[in-house]
């Protein structure tokens, strides 16, 4: 009996915690269906329900809302960022994990130090470099911003490659395989799970990034925005009372694919942060 009571309170506490954690998400979902465009200040659930917020998003683009455009902009940027950064990270990881060369450790330390510089600091200089190349407010500029420095984020993938037995590579070398062949034919297939992690991770970056996009996409033309900037813009003081529930609808839609990808990715996240030392 005592055990049952304990179990009841145990689960009650869990339910309370989960409710606390999910309330904002619930608010997002219900407000997305709200018939009142502004912020509902007195009721949690909307008084009138409608799906017009979603139709506005996709079917009635105006000078503020260009959701379809934002979505395709972000998608294009995300796909290219994902390809380039995954390739970069894999190349750097293989070089640092599987090859031994002069200055390897020095390069690794250097890259760690470089990673320490807050991105916000060098961002202004990046902005001017891209501006002088005429790449602000363009897809290419954003892709460069997100993927050019991605080689520095090699630690997790390298950690994974470090766990692959060296005997595999040595056997291949004895058979006369070149490093290129070992890389593409042996390492890449083994690293599939961590490649999935890397792909999802770099794909998610442009969807969630706020800082760089705000700086680079400064034309003020709604068509050029990514989803994050477009949605943020709706909450401008002069717009929020007309667009708040549309903001929620947009946030809800973009959250669905991202949540799914995130949940797929989260199991790799653990290994990444603890640097594989979990196994030790």
């Amino acid at each position: 009996m005592k055990k049952k009571v304990g179990s009841f309170f145990h689960h009650l506490l869990l339910i309370i915690l989960v409710v606390i954690w999910l309330i904002p998400i619930l608010w997002l979902v219900v407000t997305a269906f709200s018939g009142y465009p502004g912020i509902n200040k007195t009721h949690f659930f909307p008084e009138t329900w409608t799906i017009s917020n979603f139709t506005t998003l996709f079917l009635k683009p105006d000078s503020v809302v260009q959701y379809g455009r934002w979505f395709s902009n972000t998608l294009i940027i995300a796909i290219f960022t994902c390809i380039i950064s995954t390739v970069f990270v894999l190349m750097v990881s293989y070089a640092f994990s599987c090859m031994r060369f002069k200055g390897r450790k020095t390069l690794m330390s250097l890259s760690l130090i470089l990673n320490m510089f807050p991105g916000v600091l060098s961002m202004i200089a990046v902005y001017f470099v891209l501006k002088s190349l005429g790449l602000t407010n363009s897809h290419l500029g954003m892709i460069i911003v997100y993927s050019a420095g991605s080689g520095l984020g090699y630690l997790i993938v390298k950690g994974f490659m470090d766990t692959v037995p060296v005997s595999l590579r040595e056997a291949a070398r004895l058979e006369g395989a070149s490093e290129l062949q070992i890389f593409t034919k042996i390492m890449l297939p083994i690293c599939k799970p961590i490649i999935v992690y890397q792909v999802i991770n770099s794909f998610l970056l442009p969807w969630g990034d706020f800082v760089f996009a705000k700086l680079m996409l400064n034309s003020g033309i709604s068509k050029d925005y990514t989803v994050a900037i477009g949605l943020y813009n709706m909450l401008d003081r002069s717009l929020v009372n007309q667009y708040f529930s549309i903001f929620c609808a947009g946030g809800f839609i973009v959250s669905i694919p991202i949540s799914i990808l995130f949940i797929i990715m989260q199991k790799f996240y653990v290994e990444g942060v603890t640097g594989g030392s979990v196994k030790g």
Binding site: F88, M91, V92, Y94, A95, M99, F101, R104, L107, S111, L114, F117, L121, S122, M123, I124, A125, V126, V129, I144, V145, S147, A148, G149, S150, G151, L152, S178, E179, L180, F183
Partner: peptide, 25 residues
Amino acid sequence: FSEKFHLTLLALPTLGVILMNIIPI
């Protein structure tokens, strides 16, 4: 592509880091 493969691998990522990180810093 064999014993000096690391040079090939690191060339492009390094260029990116120089452009995006080192020079701006």
